[in-house]
Each structure stands twice: as C-alpha cells, then as structure tokens.
C-alpha cells in the first residue's frame, strides 16, 4: 500500500507540474515573451501522466504538437523545457525546436512533432529496433483524434500489427481537431464512429476506450497494454477521452464549442478529481496538498527565472546541427 500511495502522490504531483507549467506558459505567451505557437496540455494531464507511469526507463515515447505534458510526465527537466519554449540557448534543443519540437532524446523521447500523425510510423520503427536488437523496450505513441484520420495512422498500426511490434498507440481524444469535432450525432464531424478504438478491430489488435480524465484508469489500461507488448503480444490501441481547457493554440477563439460544454468538462477536471479521490481514501490531506502546490509553483517559477536569465542562441548556431556530428 505504501508503494502504491507514493506512486499515486507522485502522479498527482506530475499532473500538477504540467498544470502549473502550462498555465505559466500561457501567461508568458500572452505577455509576448514566447514566440511562435503554443498548444497547451491543460485539462489533458491525466493521459500523459497515467500513460508514462506505465513505462520503464528503457522505453520510448513519440509525442505531438501538444507535447509539453508528455515530456514532463516522462521526467523532462523543467528548466531546459521552459528555456526551449522561450527560445533560449539553454533549452533542450538549443532554441532550434521550440514548443512543437521540444524533446529529450536521452529520456527515450523520439521528438515532439509539428506534423499531426507523424509520430505513428516513427513509433512503429522504434518497435522494429526492439525486435531486431532484442532490447525489450516498448514504445508508447501519443497522438490525437485528428491524427486518427491520417494515412499514417492506418499504415503504422497495420505495420505494427503484421509484425507484432511492441508499440502502444495512445489516442488522446480531446474531441476536436482544431475546430472539427471527432464525432457528433449530426453536423460536422471528423469520423462517423463514436470511439476511435473501434478501428482496432480492422487491424486485428485490441482496442479499448477509457476515461482520459481518470489518471488511474489510463494507467491501468496502458500498463496492461505495455505488459502485453513487452511479452510479445503485439500492439494495442488505447483511446483516452479527454478535453482541452484551452483552444487548439493560444489565441484560438474557440467559436466551434460552447462555454457550457467547457464548463461540463471542467467539472471532470483530472487533477481535482484525483485530489478528491486521494483525500477520500485518506492518502492526502489539505496541508499536504498545499505543501505540494507550493513546491510545484516554486519549481516552475525557478524555470521561468532560469529562462529569462538565459542567453539567446549565438547567431553561429543557425547552421550547426543540420547534420549529425558534423558541419557540411
């Protein structure tokens, strides 16, 4: 029980870190300190945290354009992450990737990706390495409901299935591909099925749908899929139904959804739900929660200070890293 309690508190903290990190990015983006686009993970924290906590150190993930949560859940360094989003030399990618490409390859992160659906074939390839070099690693592929309409979804899952690759495809169904609803009984829709996981049967793999705002449910489903993949049982599709609190990107006026809908989903907020669950089970009290919150806020504040005080990349960096380990 002790171990389980620690793990649960850890998952709560991981979600809180994402929440605080993203809220802070939101603020500094609005203030004009962060260039480009940012796609915030607010509201979806349970998916990244539940899923990444099912992995071992040697495993891999592929991330998306909405990838901050994945990297944080995988143990990414908040200073290097924030500095990358600020475009600083001290960022994970030396300021060359930014929000959409932020990655720590040493943590087994095979890139966040600005192309929707690009991570699925990359994850399949990582699965091939596991087979050829017999590493025992499992690859967890995050993608959204929007990506599930791309050809990469079909080709990658088919390949993973026929070759029995150790890959877990985790669909973060946040209900919208920018403005296009994944499914509605009538009107505009991206697909004519309620559950993306229905598609699994077409590839001969198992598919489940879970409450993506329930971190334990996500963790349980992904843990089972990872175990199956590691034991040679091949790929699975795990769909996590969730909702983004913010628009597709910061600045999105979200004209395509109602305030009432957002409020309904906020009632199912993954963090307050999990906090209340822990309190009900007497695994956490208010004082402990406040202490956790203070700790998380201080950590993110430090990351902002680090970023603001970091130098811009040197102009000579424009043409370095085009090729691995050499200039050309």
């Amino acid at each position: 029980m002790k171990e389980s309690k620690d793990k649960m508190i850890q998952m709560l903290e991981d979600m809180m870190v994402i929440r605080e990190f993203e809220s802070t990015v939101q603020k500094h983006f609005a203030e004009g300190e962060i260039p480009g686009f940012v796609h915030l993970y607010l509201g979806e924290e349970a998916v990244a945290v539940g899923a990444c906590n099912a992995l071992e150190e040697k495993d891999y993930i592929t991330s998306t354009h909405r990838g901050h949560g994945h990297l944080l859940a995988r143990g990414g360094d908040v200073n290097k992450m924030m500095a990358e989003i600020f475009g600083k030399a001290t960022g994970y990618n030396k300021g060359k990737g930014g929000s959409m490409h932020i990655a720590d390859v040493s943590l087994g992160i095979l890139g966040a990706n600005g192309i929707v659906g690009a991570g699925l074939p990359i994850a399949a390839g990582s699965g091939i390495t596991s087979q050829i070099l017999d590493t025992g690693a499992v690859t967890l592929c995050f993608f959204g409901d929007g990506a599930s309409n791309r050809g990469t979804f079909h080709e990658a899952i088919n390949l993973a299935s026929i070759w029995n690759l150790p890959v877990v495809f985790v669909c973060e169904n946040n209900m919208y591909a920018i403005s296009m609803p994944q499914y509605r009984s009538d009107g505009r829709k991206g697909q004519n099925i309620k559950d993306v996981s229905d598609r699994a049967v077409a590839y001969g793999i198992s598919g489940v749908t879970v409450d993506g705002n329930d971190v334990m449910a996500v963790n349980e489903a992904v843990t089972e899929a990872v175990k199956k993949a590691r034991n040679g049982g091949g790929p699975s599709l795990v769909e996590c139904k969730t909702y983004r609190h913010r628009g597709h990107f910061e600045g999105d006026p979200t004209v395509y959804r109602s305030d009432e809908e957002l409020e309904e989903w906020k009632k199912k907020d993954p963090i307050s739900r999990f906090k209340n669950l822990l309190k009900d089970q007497e695994l956490l009290d208010d004082a402990e929660y406040d202490e956790l919150k203070e700790k998380v806020e201080a950590r993110i504040k430090e990351a902002v200070d680090f970023s603001q005080n970091s130098p811009d990349p040197d102009p000579s960096e424009v043409t370095t890293d085009v090729y691995y380990g050499e200039g050309v």
Partner: peptide, 19 residues
C-alpha cells in the same frame, strides 16, 4: 505491405533508436 509512408516513417523511428 504497399506502405511507403510507413516504410520511411518507421525507418526514421528505427534509425533514431539504434538501428
């Protein structure tokens, strides 16, 4: 299979992980 997108995309993933 006839799957050029997955051939190249999975080659990228395989290459990034040590193959």
């Amino acid at each position: 299979p006839i799957t050029e997108t997955a051939i190249v995309g999975s080659a990228v993933g395989a290459a990034m992980t040590g193959s």
